[in-house]
């Protein structure tokens, strides 16, 4: 059982401090919802955990199990078991989603020099797409190119399903989705929930929490966690807004 431990994390971008001392523990098997208004630092935390080069950690540590993450690049963190579902995933023209996923799978799930046979991977992909109720044709299209908002988010969840990380950070996975797409994405996340994976669900609104019940809820305001609690905290936010905290 591994734990993601964030201890007194301070992060700046271009000398401006965004996160001012975040401490948080996420265990495998837990679902944490991290809520907060615009500009509170939610996405900064997500990008920093994944190792975005533009975010500078000025103080504090991030650790998964015994491994300190601070100095590792994004690819090394991915290998340690961190996954980020992007709010705005990049388009990669001319590279099919299935080839991209196979490369990711080989890098993260296979020993070096022992790639998964193409047919075997196709089976894994088909199975996961079926589990998430996705159209298999999507895998043949260029990564995120011309994808609708819903398709992008589902493609992120598909990647999560295939990579099976230890800790998954879902950055505003619910944003920009209509009710049906939201339900579908939430069902996907619920299907992947289990004792092997710890989830940090970052969201502005509580509506996705109608479909996914978190074990813990944290409220982030001004770069600090101002309150933590159980699922009931999300309902309170729904009624009173962040002003009421």
């Amino acid at each position: 059982m591994k734990t993601l431990t964030i201890d007194n994390l301070h992060v700046s971008i271009e000398e401006k401090e965004i996160l001012r001392g975040i401490s948080l523990q996420v265990k495998q098997g837990e679902v944490h919802a991290l809520m907060g208004p615009n500009g509170s630092g939610k996405s900064t935390l997500a990008s920093t955990l994944m190792g975005h080069p533009r975010y500078e950690v000025t103080e504090g540590t991030m650790q998964l199990g015994d491994v300190r993450l601070n100095k590792l690049g994004p690819d090394k963190r991915a290998k340690e078991g961190i996954f980020l579902s992007f709010q705005y995933p990049s388009e990669i023209s001319g590279v099919s989603l299935q080839n991209f996923l196979r490369t990711a799978y080989n890098n993260l799930k296979r020993e070096k020099g022992k790639p998964v046979p193409v047919l075997e991977f196709r089976k894994i992909l088909e199975e996961k797409m079926k589990l998430l109720g996705m159209n298999p044709l999507l895998a043949k299209r260029s990564v995120n190119e011309g994808f609708s908002g819903g398709e992008k988010k589902r493609s992120e969840i598909l990647q999560l399903a295939i990579i099976e990380p230890t800790i998954a950070i879902l950055d505003e996975t619910d944003s920009g989705l209509d009710v049906d797409a939201l339900k579908a994405v939430a069902q996907g996340i619920n299907a992947l929930r289990g004792p092997e994976i710890g989830i940090v669900l970052i969201t502005h609104y509580s509506r996705i929490l109608k479909y996914i019940t978190p074990d813990h809820v944290h409220i982030l305001v001004g770069g600090k966690i101002v309150r933590s609690g159980g699922a009931e905290l999300a309902h309170q936010i729904e009624e009173t807004g962040y002003e009421g905290i």
Partner: peptide, 10 residues
Amino acid sequence: QLFYLMSRGL
């Protein structure tokens, strides 16, 4: 783009 791909282990 690079950050996205590297976050997938590349």
